[in-house]
């Protein structure tokens, strides 16, 4: 029997459409099989790989091959940039 891990996911900017919302104020809880990577999570959420630019897990930037752990907080971004006074 495969066990699962539970992660908490927030999608940002143009990616929120894959959660069916305009703005995600609270993270959504997602159960994935143990051993799943960030890349697997994108597939599970039906986010095309080329739309993801950056992902943070518990505030640290992580590559698509990062293996998810129970309780991870994940933030997923498309290409963004800005900042001005």
């Amino acid at each position: 029997m495969t066990s699962t891990v539970t992660v908490f996911v927030k999608l940002y900017a143009t990616l929120t459409k894959y959660a069916g919302v305009i703005i995600m104020e609270e993270p959504m809880q997602v159960d994935v099989p143990e051993g799943s990577t960030l890349s697997d999570l994108y597939t599970r959420l039906r986010i095309p790989d080329d739309e993801v630019k950056t992902a943070f897990v518990n505030s640290a930037m992580q590559p698509p091959e990062y293996e998810l752990r129970d309780g991870d907080h994940v933030g997923i971004f498309p290409p963004v940039g800005g900042g001005a006074c």
């Binding site: 143009t14 505030s59 971004f77 800005g82």
Partner: peptide
């Protein structure tokens, strides 16, 4: 993607979430 889509859609304040996520 940044100058053609991100900035026109959300403005410079698109950064709030990503800088916050980065801690």
């Amino acid at each position: 993607a940044v100058t053609g889509k991100g900035l026109p859609t959300y403005g410079t304040n698109i950064l709030t979430n990503i800088i916050n996520e980065a801690g």
